[in-house]
Amino acid sequence: MTLIYGHRGAKGEAPENTLVSFQRCLEHGVRRCELDLHLSRDNQLMVIHDPTLKRTTGRRGKVAQHNADDLVGYDAREGGPGWITPCPIPRLAELFEQCDFDHWQLEVKSASKTRAARTVTAIAELAERYGLNDKVTVTSGSREVLRALQRLTPHLSRGLVAEYAWLDPLKVADHYGCDLLALNWTLCTPERLQKAQKAGLHVSVWTVNEPALMRRLADFGVDSLITDYPGLAVTTLSHRNTVAGT
């Protein structure tokens, strides 16, 4: 059974990484999501993909240069599907409060040693506060972030985001004690998938938006797909008795 994760909520249907995007994902019955995190200037976890504000809000500057109270006032509708009402950048705490997901993939981008430590500690504190320790996997392609997770928050599930094959992703995942491998779909061969699953890794493949590719990867036996179109994925995979998000 292949599970479905909404990518940045339902990125193809609503402005990415906003509350309405995650609500749209849940409306499709998809109870798993993937999102991106950056720290604000006052060390709050903000749900936004880029380190800069330009692409999604049209504003200048970096997320890290703004306090959370200011960031939640910025409209993040730019560069995505049309939306009538403003869509603020959310705090992760807001999503934890308002969205009842069964599992969260929380991706942390590259960071300095100090920033990685602050970020993973903040995630651990928030997961503990909302009772979500067993519903969170923190993922990253950054060795610095994975090291911080291993050292500071060993109780949290962690995952490697693998986009390129220049290093064996299975060896890297094993080195950092990961239990999830978020694999670019172009790297997902049946052989690599089987080897990863034999090593005990949950293999989550991204970003999968074409029905034919969804079916092919499900036939391979991937554990989960990350998609911009969770509704389409539910429809496409339903005849395979796939249950979204369970």
Rank of each mutant, 00 (worst) to 15 (best):
P51F: 08
L53Q: 04
L53H: 04
L53S: 01
K54M: 10
R55A: 13
T56D: 10
G58M: 05
R60L: 13
G61A: 09
V63P: 12
A64R: 15
Q65M: 05
H66A: 09
N67R: 08
A68V: 03
D69F: 02
D70M: 00
D70K: 07
V72F: 00
D75S: 11
P81Y: 01
W83K: 01
I84P: 00
T85F: 08
T85V: 06
P88I: 00
P88Y: 02
P90I: 02
A93Y: 03
E94L: 13
L95W: 01
L95A: 03
D100A: 15
F101W: 08
F101I: 06
E107R: 05
V108M: 14
K109E: 15
S110T: 11
A111F: 12
S112C: 09
A117I: 11
V120Q: 06
V120M: 09
T121A: 11
I123T: 07
A124I: 00
L126D: 08
A127K: 02
R129T: 15
G131Y: 08
G131A: 09
V136W: 08
T137H: 05
T139N: 11
S140M: 03
G141N: 11
S142P: 10
S142A: 14
V145F: 12
L146R: 10
L146K: 08
L146S: 05
L152F: 01
P154R: 07
P154I: 02
P154W: 03
S157Y: 08
R158N: 11
L160M: 12
L160P: 13
V161E: 07
V161I: 15
E163T: 12
Y164C: 05
A165K: 03
W166L: 14
D168Q: 06
D168E: 12
P169F: 04
L170T: 05
V172P: 03
V172E: 12
V172A: 06
D174E: 14
H175P: 00
G177S: 07
N184L: 00
N184S: 06
W185Y: 09
W185P: 00
T189L: 09
